[in-house]
Design a protein around this nucleic acid. Sequence first.
RNA 1: GGGCGCGUGGCCUAGCCUGGAUAUGGCGCCAGCCUUCUAAGCUGGAUGACCGGGGUUCGAAUCCCCGCGCGUCCGCCA
Length: 559
Amino acid sequence: MNPNELVIESVRESLKKGLEELGYDGALDIQPAPEGAGDVALPCFRIAKTMKKNPVEIAKVLADGFVANDIVESVSSQGPYLNFNLSRKAFSDAVLSAIDDASIFRGNKRKEKVLLEHTSANPTGPLHVGRARNPIIGDTTARIMRAAGYDVETEYYVDDVGKQAVMVAWGVERFGEAEERADYLYVKHYQRVNELMESDEEAKESISDWIRRYENGDAEIREKVRKTVNEMMSGILMSLKRLGIELDNLAYESDIVFSGKVDEVIEGLKSKGVLQKDESGALYIDLADYGVSGKDTRFFITRSDGTSLYSTRDVAYHIDKGNRSDRMLDVLGEDHRLQSKAVSIMLNMLGAREPDVMFYAFVGLPEGRMSTRKGRVVYLDDLMDEAVERALEEVRKRRDDLSEDEMREIAEAVGVSAIRYNIIRVQPEKRMVFKWEDALNFEGESAPFIQYSYARASSIIRKAGDFERVFSAEEDGEWRLLRKMAEYPAVIEEAAEKKKPHILAAYLRDLASMFNDFYRDYPVLSSEKRDARLTLTDSFRKVMRAGMDALGIRVLERM
RNA sequence: GGGCGCGUGGCCUAGCCUGGAUAUGGCGCCAGCCUUCUAAGCUGGAUGACCGGGGUUCGAAUCCCCGCGCGUCCGCCA
């Protein structure tokens, strides 16, 4: 039993008499009590509502029947609230043993396999900051769900079908191959090819020919496109790796198309009798029948020549993903909301499972939305370089005792983590405006703030040598820190269930802050309670490390 | 025109699902704290916010309705 469950059960136990008297056996929403009012609180509004009684009276009845136990020492009713004091000794023991045997970190064992798709940016150029939210949200969510006990597999859906990919491949043939980081060279090819399409009839004809051949399954063209796409992908994956993000699978859209699965989807939809045909023979469904409205609610699933469209292929892809997992989770930009809805409608028609979707708003620049075409863009690699360089300056200022290599390593970890934290701390639906000074801020609510508290704790432990593991959180500051640590499993659980990674970001910030207070108020090494405080400090490190891993923030022993 | 998302101090942000104890945290500003474990930290101060209007309720940032603003989508592109 994790510490939170222990508290809830102990409170329930202590109120047994009153609860029986009221005839209530529903959930008890225990929450932290406000400063000075006790340790945990039970607001009685919910019980009052179900029991149709006055919450103040409920609190009174429950308080009257209170019986203390190992964990819960005393209660006081304040109007509609019950405030409990916990036994610091007993609760400390419970928390520390849960940390020592790692049960606090295990999460609930789940059987479900989750297939989480994220990033899936078109391989036409390097990742830019406008898209960076996707991999960071996706990877962090995957980490959190794993920490909560899910079996998670991550996947990048590579859009290698259609004009764009062929245009890049054509550009490579015409303008040359890349030695390394193909994404940076080929994005220029892509831009040049776009221009040629406007100005050069011959080029346009040649490209159209490639596209036709590609769609007809011409082996030579397909191979060229696949090779180009893979070179682009290796650049993109390199950027992601630097952020600490590695995908388990790449799924190619072309594989779905050429496997015939898309045709099955089209046939399936036809047989449901939901498709309509426009003047030229293209098939569509009318989303108006499914509660969608707009200028034009026709949603096309094939062209007039019978070939498939992106969303149709996405349906086939989701059916495939559904066969490989128990749950699907997609991370998509808010521009995909309607698309995604249409895909779900179609999956539903075909009797297939629908994905859960996390949508995020774009990261824009003060002057507007990022656009590769307009050259209004900040590349993720440039942001990482800048962040790491800034971090290096900061390390140099503070540490003259470290080697150049050590300083660079710290700077890398700080810079990259700062970017992740800066993005993940905000709710995904909220629009973000990219500002260098915010993205590179290493103070206050930031990754270095969290990393720093951990490094301070590590520094103490390093100096301590051996110590005996004994503990009881007697002082207020020790107790506050311990109770914050005890919240860890509940935070992971909530962040995973609600798919809200920013909950964990806020928690780690609070936990770090709590440790900073402890660090200020309670000397560890020189204390007569040295062993007890070392035990607390080391336990904090364990919780922090687990949390940082789950958030994708690099752990530093010194900085 | 319609759908969807968002709107909280000068700026950023939590809380909204599940209504309830003085609305979270940060940035910025001012004044302090390194002869004790790392000052990327900490303390104090000033300013001062739930987009507007109705409604439901004993009670609304939270639920409902009507507006307003911003974003996004409504392609036989991906």
